Every structure is written in structure tokens, then in C-alpha cells.
Amino acid sequence: MLTNPPKVSPVANLRSDVGLASALRVTLARLNRRLRRQSAKHSLTPTQLATLVAVDRHSAITPGELAEQEKVQPPSMTRVIAALAARGLVSRTPHPTDRRQVTVTVTEAGLALLKEERRLKEAWLAQRLKELTPEERTVLRQAAPILEKLSKI
């Protein structure tokens, strides 16, 4: 008779780097999915939202620079920017030194959407943090810069 082996928690084997990598991958993916569910009611695709965040972070950026940063092909980025512009979330203006290009900036409507998006996600996460012990929150405060470093490597 075959039985299924018991499921192992993703944090069960943290002694090895491979085990840590596996645990982080599973846990961060799950946390990311949960945070995405806390989204403002806007119907943007994940790519559109990531692009809006990138434009906000790097004001007056060209579509080519955005495509490179977001790791998508320039024609795909052009379509994403067009969709965001059609909704009034970004504006395109002539590039100050290269008439063949445009720069993209976030509009007031785009800023309002991002503000609400961040507010909802941070409120959800703050509530989850309240459920942790003070010691657990201290560990997370120490881990946050390390996770940030990992995200930039």
C-alpha cells in the first residue's frame, strides 16, 4: 500500500544554503501573493503596476530605460505605457535633448492609485506584524536590510 509522505514545512531545513534558498523562495512567493490580494481596486496587470511603480521611482524615464529596467522588450513596454497613458496614470512628454524620444512621468491620478495601493498593503502587513512577538519583529527588522540586499544582487 502506497502512502503519501508527510508534507515538510518550507522552513524545515534551514541548515544548508539550499534549504534556506528553498524556504525563502516558497515563503516570499506566498507573502507576495497575499500582498497582491490586498490591492486597490484598479484592474491593472502586475506588469502595468510594476511599470507605474518604476516610473514613480525614476521620474522622467524613457520607455527604453523602463524596458531595460523591467526586463521586457521595448515593444512590450510601449504597449504597457500606452495602456497606462490611456487611463491617465502616466504622461508622455518630449525628451528634453532627443526629439526622437519621450519621457514618461506619473500623473496625479497615478500617484493617487499608488498611494492607495501602498496604504492597503502596508495596513495588511502592519496588522500581521502585530500578531508577532516583539522578538520576532526585532528579527524581521534585522532581516529587512539583508532581504533588500538580496533583491539587488
Rank of each mutant, 00 (worst) to 15 (best):
V90C: 03
L35H: 02
K41Q: 07
R119W: 06
T27V: 02
P94W: 00
T103V: 15
P74F: 06
R118N: 10
A82C: 08
L140T: 09
K121S: 06
K121R: 15
E68A: 12
T93H: 11
L111H: 14
T107A: 09
E116I: 04
Q127F: 07
G19C: 04
R141Q: 14
E70W: 00
T97G: 02
K71F: 07
D98C: 05
D17H: 09
I153K: 10
R100V: 03
K149S: 09
L52M: 01
N4W: 10
A126F: 09
V72N: 07
E131K: 14
Q142S: 05
E108K: 12
E135C: 00
R57N: 09
A109K: 11
S91D: 14
V90D: 01
G19M: 05
Q127D: 15
L132W: 09
L49W: 02
K115M: 10
K7A: 15
N4R: 14
G110L: 01
R128Q: 15
A144E: 06
L114I: 12
A29R: 11
R141Y: 05
K149T: 11
V90I: 04
L44C: 09
R34C: 11
E135Y: 03
K7C: 08
V18Q: 12
H42I: 00
S39A: 13
T51D: 00
L35G: 06
K71W: 03
G110F: 01
A144L: 11
P5R: 06
Q48D: 13
Q127S: 15
T107Y: 04
E148C: 06
V26R: 05
A82Q: 15
A112C: 02
L14D: 07
P94F: 00
V102L: 03
L150S: 04
R79W: 03
E68C: 04
I153G: 13
T133K: 09
V106Q: 02
E70K: 13
A82M: 07
L14C: 13
I153V: 06
A83M: 11
N4A: 14
L113D: 01
P63T: 12
R15P: 01
E117C: 10
E117W: 05
L84H: 03
A40R: 00
A123L: 15
P134S: 08
E117P: 07
